[in-house]
């Protein structure tokens, strides 16, 4: 499809949505949001992008196969589950780091964030792999 306005808007939309999804991921622990929701929002951006540009372009942005992304997501989850064990806690225990950084002020970082990032990557990978497969079956590569 050759419609320059539509193409520019889709690209802008994808960037905006991607930023939004990362925001949702980061605020997730104590406020509404989280990895799962973030991933779904991210997938919406990609679906819009795919409808206009075709699934080949999604795959080009993703760089890796969606399967690999799901694997990476599971890897993060695994890390968050096992890390506390090596420090003598029960598996999946939340470990927290609190620090005062210049410019950022006081921040809290913990293994739940790693876990959520894993969910984010894994779920986004899963949804995109479904979408890409459907698009390939329908031959949606304009």
């Amino acid at each position: 499809m050759n419609n320059i306005i539509l193409e520019k808007i889709a690209l802008l939309f994808l960037r905006g949505i991607a930023l939004m999804s990362v925001f949702l991921l980061l605020r997730g622990h104590n406020s509404p949001g989280g990895g799962f929701i973030g991933a779904i929002v991210l997938a919406i951006g990609f679906i819009f992008y795919g409808i206009i540009f075709g699934s080949d372009r999604i795959e080009r942005i993703l760089y890796f196969n969606t399967r690999i992304w799901m694997g990476i997501g599971l890897g993060f989850v695994l890390l968050a589950a096992v890390w506390p064990v090596f420090l003598g806690h029960a598996p999946l225990t939340g470990l927290w780091y609190t620090g005062n950084w210049p410019l950022l002020g006081e921040i809290h970082l913990g293994t739940p964030l790693i876990f959520d990032t894993g969910i984010f990557i894994g779920v986004a990978g899963l949804i995109l792999s479904v979408i890409i497969t459907i698009m390939e079956v329908l031959k949606w590569n304009t």
Binding site: R67, I68, G71, L74, L78
Partner: peptide, 10 residues
């Protein structure tokens, strides 16, 4: 099994 699932994807 979880580790296997991860490796099988990668």
């Amino acid at each position: 099994p979880f580790t296997y699932l991860m490796l099988a994807l990668l």
